[in-house]
Amino acid sequence: MTKRAVIVGINDYSQQPATKYFMWPNLGGCLADASSLDGLLRGAFGFDSTVLLTDSQASGEAIMAAVGEMLTASGAGDVATFCYAGHGGRLPSNPDDYNDPANYRFYDCIVPYSGDYITDKDLYRLVSSLEPSTVNFTLIMDCCHSGGLSQISPDGRLRSGDYTSNLIDMCVNLMNTVIPCGVVLPPEATGMDGNVSNVAGDGNGVVCSVDDNKSFVPQSKATVLAACRYDEVDADSVGAEGHGGLTAALLDCINATNQQTSYWELVDALRDDMLNILNLQQTPTLLGQENRMDQVFLAAWDDSM
């Protein structure tokens, strides 16, 4: 059994130009996240191999190549983990055609240092041959996708770009489905369709109601530990070490317990830590593969299900 990880942290967004949908301010805590997650995976979870990509190393092409190589090398009994700390966004299925009938479906994306945004459709192309019943593919996503809803403090940052009025209009009028980046669903999968409703603009972002019954789908090939729900924001530069909200809570919880905690137990501990220790109004969330959440976080699957 081999444990491998690709870890990405991006503070510098100077090479991502503003578009008709987004603008991308620089961040402050993502390099600290990447370094700490690298140490956590190696020290606490016994990872054999980690690839660390930060700022200019983390182009879209480099991220996709590193994740692809990790997954290609992974076989039965292995663990593959992708950690991302940086900006997130959200775009309709066809952002160039407002009237495309497919635009009820929006895709969360992660934003590399340079190059194209990465969505679940891109990740699916890398894992089409992956057998999720034997390989534990987990993504840890310290970002958000709902826009720059409100500042945490006058100097605070959020890990989602500000939505333009064009994108807010598209979300309010078209969106009833959000496909998270990392659940790794086939393009034809419909299990998450209709998972959001009551979409409304809020400042430079959107809020919505979320159907939690559609968080897990049988066709997903991965598990996502997300920093927050679809309509929440992820804090940047939290605490003395300046981490993102999810990384700060994850370090707290792993250091306070042992590593033999299930996915369900961990997300409950993370929610408690964010609310009562870090004073953050965000809700860590599990998404994706439906039948493994009682198993140990970042451990090899104990059987073939």
Rank of each mutant, 00 (worst) to 15 (best):
M1C: 12
R4E: 00
A5T: 03
V6C: 04
I7E: 00
N11Y: 01
P17M: 05
F22Y: 13
F22L: 06
W24L: 06
P25L: 02
A34P: 08
R42V: 14
F45G: 04
T50W: 02
V51L: 06
T54C: 10
D55C: 09
S56E: 15
S56W: 10
Q57M: 15
E61I: 07
A62E: 09
A62Y: 04
M64I: 09
A65Q: 10
V67Y: 01
V67N: 05
M70V: 08
M70E: 07
A73R: 15
R90M: 13
N94S: 10
P95R: 03
D96F: 11
R105A: 00
Y107A: 01
G115L: 00
D120C: 02
D120M: 00
R125M: 09
L126K: 07
S129L: 07
L130Y: 03
P132R: 10
V135F: 03
F137P: 04
T138V: 11
M141Q: 11
D142P: 07
C144E: 06
G147F: 15
S150T: 09
S153D: 11
R159H: 03
D162P: 15
D169S: 08
D169E: 06
D169F: 02
V178L: 12
V184F: 07
N195P: 04
S197W: 04
S197A: 13
G203I: 04
N204T: 09
C208Q: 07
V210N: 06
N213G: 15
S215A: 14
P218I: 05
V224D: 10
C228R: 13
C228N: 14
R229L: 13
D231I: 04
E232P: 09
E232Y: 10
A235D: 00
S237T: 07
V238G: 01
D252L: 10
I254K: 01
N255Y: 06
N258A: 02
Q260M: 06
Q260E: 03
W264L: 13
D268Y: 07
A269Q: 13
R271H: 08
D272P: 02
D273E: 15
L280E: 12
Q281Y: 13
L287S: 10
L287I: 13
D294E: 11
Q295C: 03
Q295K: 13
V296T: 15
A300P: 11
W301D: 07
D303F: 13
S304Y: 07
M305N: 12
